[in-house]
């Protein structure tokens, strides 16, 4: 068997692939966080809870209503977005004038409540979500086996991230969002309904987290704690990439997934902490993040 630095190449490729899958989820979640932070000035600590909610909605759709994977890709994120709209309109709205800290505390509280509800109902053990038939099996790439579903997750996440980036940076709709992020008061004085834009931005951001949850359901188990497990890493990703930078969030997410995968191969003991070590180093050298602008 071929080896690189004493590591079998099969193990290396395998871990890189898992890293890429994780990185795709990091990218999708941190992208939503970055968009929300840009427009609302709120660090959305409930992001992980919305991700978990997306996974649970898709599990519920399947088990209670018999609605399969493809429809839940559409319906579960819409459900999550609607919950987001209610939360933005009834609670978050009152905090925009205040320090970031208040939004962070509120969303942290919301995350605990949402998680608590699901734990109460489903306990802490995971619920399995069966793969759709079409994704069973794997591609044989010669040097490694690539499970079909993982390939789909990577492709889908990257496509969604690219589409989001394109809409924000290259379209008319995106120019509203960019201008609103810079100076919401002036944009509103020009006649654009900024409060509505803010609500929709939040709905979109958490909907993206929900979509991540649906994609994740067959990979990991559907578990009330799946959100809080991933969200800490995702916050590290956003800090490393730079708050409010769209492209930064995407690239950093994928890169850190890969770095985590590599660490698992070469020094497994550090794989859980490597992201935070990188975060500390980046904060020391570039406090605004790799892609962030100093303010």
């Amino acid at each position: 068997m071929t080896e690189i630095f004493g590591v079998p190449t099969q193990a290396l490729w395998g871990q890189l692939m898992i890293g890429l899958v994780n990185g795709s989820f990091y990218a999708m979640l941190s992208l939503g966080l970055a968009v929300i932070f840009g427009m609302l000035n709120v660090v959305n600590f409930a992001h992980g809870a919305f991700y978990m909610m997306g996974a649970f909605f898709s599990w519920m759709l399947l088990n209670f209503l018999g609605i399969g994977y493809w429809w839940s890709l559409l319906l579960a994120p819409i459900g999550v977005a609607l919950v987001g709209i209610v939360i933005e309109k009834t609670m978050l709205r009152w905090l925009y004038q205040l320090d970031h800290l208040y939004g962070l505390l509120l969303t942290f509280g919301i995350a605990l409540i949402i998680e608590g509800i699901f734990r109460d109902q489903y306990g802490v053990s995971g619920q399995p979500y069966d793969l759709p038939e079409i994704f069973k099996g794997a591609f044989d790439l010669g040097f490694m086996m690539l499970p079909k579903y993982r390939a789909w997750v990577i492709v889908a996440c990257l496509a969604i991230c690219f589409a989001t980036w394109f809409v924000i940076e290259r379209t008319r709709l995106g120019s509203y969002l960019r201008a609103g992020t810079e100076n919401p008061k002036l944009v509103q004085a020009f006649g654009i309904n900024v409060p509505l834009m803010v609500t929709l931005t939040y709905a979109f951001g958490v909907g993206l987290a929900g979509l991540g949850g649906v994609l994740a359901a067959p990979v990991y188990q559907v578990n009330p704690l799946m959100g809080s497990n991933i969200v800490i890493v995702v916050f590290a990703v956003v800090v490393i990439g730079g708050m409010g930078s769209i492209l930064g969030a995407i690239l950093t997410g994928i890169a850190l997934g890969l770095i985590e995968g590599l660490t698992k191969v070469f020094y497994p003991e550090a794989s859980a902490t490597v992201v935070f070590i990188i975060m500390a180093i980046v904060l020391l050298i570039r406090p605004a993040g790799l892609f962030g602008r100093e303010k």
Partner: peptide, 14 residues
């Protein structure tokens, strides 16, 4: 707006 091009600035307003 610095994140918008000149033309995007021009076309921004409804």
């Amino acid at each position: 707006f610095s994140s918008l091009s000149c033309e995007e600035n021009l076309l921004l307003l409804p």
